[in-house]
Amino acid sequence: MAVGPGVLDATAVTGGGRLGRVRRWWEQEHVFGYGLILPALVLLACLVAYPFLMAVYLSLSDYWVGSPGRFVGLANFREILGNDVFRQTVRNSFVFTGIALTLKTVLGVWLALLLARNLSGKRLIRGAVLLPFVIPTALSTLGWWWMFDSLYSVVNWTGIRLGLLNPPGPNWLGVPAYAMAAVIAVNVWRGLPFFAITVLAGLVAIPREHYEAAEVDGAGAWGRFRYVTLPLLRPVLAVVILFSTIFTFSDFNIVYVLTRGGPVNTTHLFATLAYQVGLQGGNLGQGAAISLFLFPMLGVVVFLQLRYIRRE
């Protein structure tokens, strides 16, 4: 229920004169609202709008690093669609994002529920679970790389000692399925704390009375989760999933460090392929087209999800 301007006039604002008029003006809901988002808009207009429009323009031109280009319409998009490395990348991205996101959502909510319990030592546990998010990705991914190294893999060494793997163990980064599993594992490892901690904060915001009421009604653990937790968690969950979708789709570091897209391009994602084509290969136009390829689709998804969130 919005507060009508009438209420304001009557009660909130006292005093007259110029200051009073400014204050009255400022107390109007729309003025106040615009005022609060103004800094954000200025920042984004100056530092994001120009680069963004530039990136869009790049994708429609035959721009090269260090040389001007001209407008070529959708030629870049036609060209990348005709390339089977790109089509492979599209498939990889959906497999990667689909699996990683599902795992992160399910495990993240589960972990958050566990973390929300009043266990002794919970601070320690929370701190431990957060750690993967804390270590700089560019460095932790190197650690994972070392764990998957073909000669010194600690994963294989341990697995073999425990009798779980046959020597020499899986060639983690050399076989398409294993390599994909490896990059997904690292992504989940890194992204899980983001889910867990945010969902946990959402859980905390749920008033206890709701649970008590549900308990009085005889709801079991699952019932409480299904009919109290989940619906009330939805706004937070929607935002987290939305962000994670974008994070995951645009992941760069993990693949770039672990496989550089190999073996035979089976782990290339949009960002790594765009880097390879646009920066290393110099074809900025095509690189931009690759990285913006999902933009329209993600845009629609975001739009729908935002509408959904707003309705909540």
Binding site: D149, S150, N171, G174, R260
Partner: peptide, 21 residues
Amino acid sequence: MEPEVLSWDDASNNRFILSGK
């Protein structure tokens, strides 16, 4: 060779020969 060559980066072959393998 061994299948590991499919996953190598520029440093892997250095480690491969330096390890004595």
